[in-house]
Design a protein around this nucleic acid. Structure first.
Lengths: 184, 184, 184, 184
DNA sequence: GTTTAAACGAGACGGTACGTCGAGTCTTCTC
DNA sequence: GAGAAGACTCGACGTACCGTCTCGTTTAAAC
């Protein structure tokens, strides 16, 4: 039996939406909990009650984004094409402000092991889990799957952080080709 | 003709050394300009005069570290062994607290384009420049060098950030083997 | 309609009290906003939110002091005695550390016209207003009231600043006698 | 036996002149030792070597000003006119920025007994000494001289500090008239 | 002339107070 | 009892001035 005023779903959505919007406009680092509360028309205490810090809010927002755009990865007959398509979609999304938010969340997790663990579990591992079966279908058994995942997503993260070159579909196709070449 | 009291080399070294020491003990994010000034026995204004922010201090400190441990990459007769040795050394160093400092500096550069550019120029590009000729000697001409560099260092950065697995000599050898496999 | 947490009257009183106490112990010039915050057990930001500078805090504190010790100036039958009593009370108070605080506040107002205006309005003019009717009852109409006020309070201020002689009841009686002599 | 380079009279004059100029332009409180050194084209150490603080510099500068405009107080046959003329000259000078500087110096002396003593000795007492004989010639013996001096200069200082009315020739004449009225 | 030593301009140094900002908590009123 | 508003404590930030110090240069008297 629960009592009292229930959590406001409206506030929750307003916070997530405001947080994403502010990140898109000002960049993750520049956004403040105060800003988010103001933009969402929400009390500051509400943020602390339900999330506690900026990274957790964005982590949840990113989760919703992923859930919306999940789109079942219908396995076509061509494993190589399936891999390429997955990477094109993933890298394409990472190339927008969403990638910057992901980087920001990861960055905040650097100094806080607990948050880092959540990032790993909710943001990183799911993607690894999606990539792994696609690689299974193109790689011979003697190639280590985890290493291959590190190489693929590593290249993406490296460019996201370092920005020496864009993260886009073209890059995704290059990386896919390199994997296939490794497959022999 | 310059006049006035010359900059104190002693203070400079004390600052760089204190900064590294505090990062090793407390982690990059936890270290404060105040802490560094206190640990170095130096006025806070001196830090702002010559560096201006934590990342710049550590950037310079990392530069000195790199200069000390440069060790000419004597090209032996075996290109594959040379590549592996370079990666073992590089990953080995990144596996210590130094890697955490590098991540911290990079992370701070995310929200500040100017600092990001310095990080890229002084920290990232030099390493890419060292790796490239080693790859030249093992990769066939049709494999894109920049892509290969992205894959190699990407894997390293991905693990540094994400910490799902160690960055060490074993990992360096796996990556080297994957590159050679890509070479066909 | 106002909402949110109301201003803490407790903090306000703690600040005013701490400020006066520190001034009494260390002298106005030596007291720091930091000191006041610490002594009052209050955040530094609170001082900046409500007052903004040392002089404003003491101005308010002096206002409260004046309000406490106002004591209606019951007009007796003897105008000369009333004048003398007023001056004895006023000079007596100015002779304590309170006079030093008043000087300090005035001094701070020298370089800031806005603050100077407040000091004039809240600290100086009220006292002139109290003195004027007392002078009216002892001075003939041809003597300029404002000049007389300047002479009386001027003598007090001159000694407060210059400290070549005490500001006390004896001095108050001398000044009162001089005024009566001017009255003819 | 003195040796070494002698003190530079040129620097000394440049400092005094720069100090007065800056006070006229920016007001005493706003002027900094750093500013004076820069404006005088002089090293900061030179200021500390010969003066030690702002007030001492201005004290010396005011002394030079007074020495320049001393003008012998030729006693005419009319004591009342002599008094009035003295006050008109004195108040006239105090009405310019010079008065503001005098106030500034006095104010700085509030928190430092040693400096206060110098101000009293070099700035205040000489003027009292000039006024006293002029009062002697107009006041009957039963009127206390020191009290009369306090009233006259007190009125001037009170207006200098408080600025509720100008310090000028007209005010000087009013004060002179009040003194004569006190004389009976 | 050469030496000697103090004063000089310049400017970096270690400190300290300032005023601002974001984080996280607390208090009051409203829904 | 959840939520909006906003005041609260705390502590890092970056700036400014202070008073000291360390340079290399200049100046004039002593030798």
């Amino acid at each position: 039996m629960t009592r009292g005023r229930p959590r406001s779903e409206e506030s929750r959505r307003a916070v997530l939406s405001a947080a994403l919007g502010l990140c898109e406009r000002d960049g993750y680092q520049a956004v403040t909990l105060k800003d988010i509360a103001a933009a969402a028309g929400v009390g500051r205490q509400t943020l602390y009650r339900w999330w506690g810090e900026k990274a957790e809010i964005l982590l949840e927002a990113l989760g919703e984004l992923a859930a919306e755009g999940l789109a079942a990865p219908e396995p076509s007959g061509d494993p190589a094409a399936d891999l390429e398509e997955f990477l094109v979609r993933t890298f394409g999304s990472a190339g927008t402000y969403v990638g910057a938010v992901v980087v920001g969340v990861m960055v905040d997790g650097q100094g806080r092991p607990e948050l880092g663990e959540r990032v790993r579990r909710e943001l990183i591992q799911p993607r690894r889990g999606e990539l792994r079966p696609l690689l299974d279908r193109v790689l011979p058994p003697e190639v280590d799957r985890e290493l291959a995942v590190d190489l693929v997503f590593g290249a993406m993260w490296y460019r996201l952080l370092n920005r020496h070159a864009p993260v886009d579909g073209a890059f995704a196709r290059e990386v896919a080709a390199a994997v296939l070449r490794m497959a022999g």
